[in-house]
């Protein structure tokens, strides 16, 4: 299977990843080879085989949805770790273009 540069550019956009022209070309070539190898799976008959989504057999693991207080020291450290802030608020770029 051949993956084109435009496919890579589309996927990179979905993944919020900025790639250089060289990287686009490199990943198109590498992913083509990798997915060609993955095509080995197409030769396996899986009719009627269930998917394995987990291996523990645990079902319906519940806990009470309760509010837990945050240790003030932990809170201060979390805030100190913000890349940008205004007082104790996390500062980010505008989410909507037109406001």
């Amino acid at each position: 299977m051949s993956i084109q540069n435009k496919d890579i550019e589309h996927v990179a956009k979905l993944a919020r990843l900025s790639l250089s022209e060289e990287e686009v070309k490199m990943y198109a070539e590498q992913l083509s080879v990798i997915f060609e190898y993955m095509d080995l799976l197409k030769t396996v008959d899986t009719d009627g085989v269930a998917e394995t989504c987990q291996v523990t057999g645990l079902e319906d693991v519940f806990r009470f949805d309760t509010q837990e207080p945050c240790d003030p020291e932990v809170r201060a450290k979390l805030i100190a770790g913000f890349p940008d802030r205004s007082g104790n608020l996390l500062k980010v770029k505008a989410v909507f273009d037109d406001v």
């Binding site: 996927v11 990179a12 993944a15 990943y27 997915f35």
Partner: peptide, 28 residues
Amino acid sequence: KRRIMIGTYALSAGYFDAYYRKAQRVRT
């Protein structure tokens, strides 16, 4: 970055059944 690209591609519309779902069945 390569893994993010492989994974996003495998999960993207039109490929999910052929790759992720198929892999989960062979995993069984």
